[in-house]
Simulated assay, not measured.
Amino acid sequence: MLPPPVKLRVPDAAFLHEEHFPGAPCVPGSCLLEAVSRAAVQAFGRPVICMAQARFRQFVPPGCACRLVWKRPAADPSSGGVSGRDDGPPRRVGWQLVAAPAADGGPAAGRLAEGELWLAPADRETTCD
């Protein structure tokens, strides 16, 4: 069973919006991926060891309210661990960042970004150097 969606809101005022991009500010993709990674650690209780297949569909402006939805990816026999067993190899999880309808000129409701991530096995400690 997948955890419930996570509500995310990008701050209106942040130093990173000033330069990315002047005149048309948006949230850098690296910041969105970091938010997804942190939300996954909280939702699943395991470190993220890999992010893959990330696709950005729309720019995400400051102040945007969105939902992060977890998806079960299609079965891939070569991936091992898709079954989600806690004693097996890392587990693959799909994600989708969806914008809430905005009346203030923000992005239209729909997909902002999507991708996959791999979680560390439950029985091992994973550290990044």
Score class of each variant (00 low, 15 high):
residue 51 M to V: 15
residue 51 M to K: 04
residue 53 Q to P: 04
residue 54 A to D: 12
residue 54 A to S: 12
residue 55 R to H: 07
residue 55 R to P: 06
residue 56 F to V: 14
residue 56 F to Q: 11
residue 56 F to L: 13
residue 56 F to Y: 06
residue 59 F to N: 08
residue 62 P to C: 13
residue 62 P to R: 15
residue 63 G to T: 11
residue 64 C to L: 06
residue 64 C to W: 03
residue 66 C to Y: 01
residue 68 L to W: 00
residue 69 V to A: 10
residue 70 W to G: 06
residue 72 R to P: 01
residue 72 R to D: 01
residue 73 P to F: 02
residue 74 A to M: 09
residue 77 P to N: 03
residue 77 P to L: 12
residue 79 S to R: 15
residue 80 G to P: 09
residue 81 G to F: 13
residue 83 S to V: 08
residue 85 R to M: 10
residue 89 P to H: 15
residue 90 P to G: 12
residue 90 P to K: 07
residue 92 R to E: 07
residue 93 V to M: 07
residue 93 V to L: 06
residue 95 W to V: 09
residue 96 Q to L: 06
residue 99 A to I: 01
residue 99 A to R: 06
residue 100 A to L: 14
residue 101 P to F: 14
residue 101 P to Y: 14
residue 101 P to K: 08
residue 102 A to V: 02
residue 105 G to L: 02
residue 106 G to S: 06
residue 106 G to V: 01
residue 107 P to G: 12
residue 108 A to H: 05
residue 108 A to Y: 04
residue 108 A to Q: 04
residue 108 A to C: 09
residue 110 G to S: 08
residue 111 R to Y: 00
residue 112 L to A: 08
residue 113 A to C: 05
residue 113 A to P: 04
residue 113 A to I: 06
residue 115 G to P: 08
residue 118 W to V: 02
residue 119 L to C: 06
residue 119 L to F: 09
residue 119 L to N: 11
residue 120 A to T: 14
residue 121 P to F: 08
